[in-house]
Design a protein around this nucleic acid. Structure first.
Ligand code: ZN
Ligand code: ZN
Ligand code: ZN
Ligand code: ZN
Lengths: 144, 144
DNA sequence: CGTGTAAATGTTATATTATTACACATATAG
DNA sequence: CTATATGTGTAATAATATAACATTTACACG
């Protein structure tokens, strides 16, 4: 697949015209079911001419800024956004299965309200919020 | 301060008899106002004979397991628990000021309930939950 | 008290994740 | 066309974390 993203299975949001490297990184992440580390992305793109981590990290910085890729802090890994709304600056939450490595993204609106209520009381002004659940997904629970 | 923790300013919980290295690491973290990286802890303990990162990481693993130290995933750093309850396996949340580096720990009971409700619906069994707010604290807002 | 076992420690080397620094190329606006 | 901002290439290095293996200590049990 080239960097025009035609036929991407992911929501188009309003993609801000990705550059060549940004497009390559986004394609690789979108084609992957689960999260990938920056170095896994690098390896996947060596055939496209990538040679240094910085090529990946710079693209990831932008994609995260655009809201179409998320960083999973507890994994030091990245995942393509799997639902609309994130580009509108909503906080996303992630359920990460420790058995199969799968990641399920959801929008924790109520939880965010509760955290915002705490922040209001504490005089804390949040700029971004990380919510990550580690555990076992439904399929892996069933397969136990 | 030696490793007996007499006079520690932190709640005693029910400390499970820390070993020498665990005690040293806990003392260093407790004496620090904010979070510390593993390597900062290592440097602080070179005078006590520490020479390798593993001495710190092994102690941290146990202290986190005991619930008296928390890992801040978005900082790759560690902080001594600043309130009781964590040893009872409650989920802690952290408000991290990007201006001054200060960390405020709190117990997000309502938010955890909301997340648990989502998990129940999704058939996801969480084992541990990360909640970290990045932003600006009250003092730094005022000093703006 | 011995003795077996689990836990903790010491040490070296290595793996993984991320950034700094600097040169060069490309896009876009005026 | 230029000025400026943004993106890219590349090498070197920093920061974070783990693997592997030998040795020591804690402590339950006979
Ligand atoms: Zn998203
Ligand atoms: Zn699973
Ligand atoms: Zn705590
Ligand atoms: Zn502050």
């Amino acid at each position: 697949m080239n960097s025009t993203h035609v036929g991407s299975s992911h929501p188009a949001h309003d993609l801000p015209k990705l550059t060549k490297n940004q497009g390559l990184v986004f394609d690789v992440l979108s084609a992957e079911a689960g999260p990938m580390t920056a170095y896994a992305i690098l390896d996947a793109l060596r055939s496209e001419g990538f040679k240094a981590p910085l090529q990946v990290y710079r693209a990831l910085d932008k994609l995260v800024e655009f809201g179409i890729v998320h960083r999973l802090e507890s994994l030091n890994a990245f995942v393509a956004c799997s639902h609309p709304g994130c580009a509108q600056n909503e906080t996303a939450a992630f359920a990460i299965c420790e058995r199969c490595g799968g990641v399920n993204e959801f929008t924790p609106e109520k939880a965010v309200e509760c955290l915002q209520a705490w922040a209001d009381g504490a005089g804390f002004a949040p700029s971004r919020t990380t919510i990550e659940l580690r555990g076992t997904c439904r399929d892996c629970m069933a397969a136990a």
